Computed example of a mutant assay.
Amino acid sequence: MVIMEPSTFPEPDVRLARLADAVGLPPAWPPADQFLDDLAQRTGLHTHDLLLVADLPLPETAWLFDETAGASSSLVSHSLALTASGRQQLRTRARSMTAPVGALTPWKPRPHEEYPPSFGSLLLRMLALRNLNWSGAAKVMCLMSGVCKAASTIGAVGRGAKQLDAEMLDGFAATLGIRVAVLAHLTGIRPSGEHREPAPEVVDTASLIWDIRHLTWDQEGELTAYAEVLGRK
């Protein structure tokens, strides 16, 4: 697999083709639903992430959140420490929960979250899909990857004030629960080391973060308490 050098932010069809090439899938444009499903399965990204990559519209429900929620450090820490069985039980509980009617509101980016087109802004929008703001992303990234940056640094990547580099690529890949090689091929940034698969607890926790994106602050607290119980078993 050839890793390209960073360049200007390419057009959507090129970005999607890079992802397809990273996992040995023939590119397709415009992308059919089956192609997006296959690409999601192979890359570990979600179809909504791929719609962002392709500059295609997402369902309005994708941006409904309780912005006081989002994956907390406590929940992520407990999830990472659980056994595989415990993580499965935690995710099962999370997927069984739904927010009360009217509890979620449409997410509207604030002025500081209006980014110029770039790979950094694309990755921050993926995290926003998971109800992670700069602060939440910084905390989760540190716990899941060991890449510990200030919230302002995360924001600077989105604004283009800080270059997306190999270290940050490691952090974003872990937070998304995918191989860094996938992001390296997409962005053209050379990865920092071996193209290792993310650890099972990282993949499961990244999936949990996705599962809880539409829950409320109270529901997340309930889930954290359940994770604590699981950790004592």
Rank of each mutant, 00 (worst) to 15 (best):
M4P: 07
P6E: 04
P6A: 06
P10W: 05
R18P: 04
L19H: 14
A20D: 12
P31M: 01
D33H: 13
L36R: 09
L36Q: 12
L39D: 05
T43A: 11
T43Y: 06
G44S: 11
G44C: 05
D49N: 15
L51N: 09
L51H: 10
L52Q: 12
V53W: 06
L56Q: 15
L58G: 09
E60D: 13
E60I: 15
F65V: 00
F65T: 00
E67Q: 15
A69S: 15
S73K: 12
L75M: 08
L75C: 12
S77N: 10
L80T: 09
L80M: 11
A81D: 13
L82A: 09
L82V: 05
T83W: 07
A84Q: 15
S96N: 15
T98I: 11
P100T: 08
P106C: 03
W107K: 12
K108V: 12
P109H: 05
P109S: 02
P109F: 00
E113Y: 10
Y115T: 06
P116K: 11
P116D: 05
F119W: 14
G120Q: 09
L123F: 06
L124F: 12
N131I: 02
A137P: 07
M141C: 10
C142K: 08
V147A: 09
A151N: 03
G155C: 04
A156Q: 15
A156F: 01
V157K: 08
R159G: 11
G160W: 01
D165M: 11
M168L: 12
M168N: 09
G171R: 02
G177K: 00
I178C: 03
V180S: 01
V182D: 00
A184P: 09
P191V: 04
S192L: 10
R196P: 11
P198H: 04
D204F: 04
D211H: 13
H214M: 06
G221T: 08
Y226N: 03
E228H: 14
E228S: 14
V229M: 15
K233N: 10
